[in-house]
């Protein structure tokens, strides 16, 4: 529940974004961040909680995947 993921916004409609996560397209709520198309966002349970720089996003993306694998082991 607590582990976040990093998504790359492909498009925005209203308060919802379509984001690329690991090659899959997911929906994320943007209600508590100011984000635009092309931004990287930190997503918690389907809701963006912060906008990230690209460098931080790429770093966190790998890290959270590793931690997710550890949780699933």
């Amino acid at each position: 529940m607590c582990l976040a993921i990093v998504g790359h916004i492909q498009s925005i409609q209203g308060s919802k974004a379509k984001v690329n996560y690991n090659g899959n397209i997911l929906q994320a709520e943007l209600g508590i961040v100011e984000a635009k198309e092309g931004d990287y966002i930190l997503i918690h349970a389907g809701c963006a909680i912060e906008v990230l720089t690209k460098a931080k996003a790429l770093e966190l993306e790998d890290l959270f995947k590793e931690l997710q694998e550890a949780f699933n082991e």
């Binding site: 529940m1 607590c2 709520e29 209600g31 508590i32 918690h44 349970a45 389907g46 809701c47 909680i49």
Partner: peptide
């Protein structure tokens, strides 16, 4: 609806 402050805004947004 379980969680700490990270999760609570989701539920608030949902109620909106």
């Amino acid at each position: 609806a379980v969680g700490f402050e990270t999760t609570t805004p989701l539920y608030a947004l949902m109620i909106d």
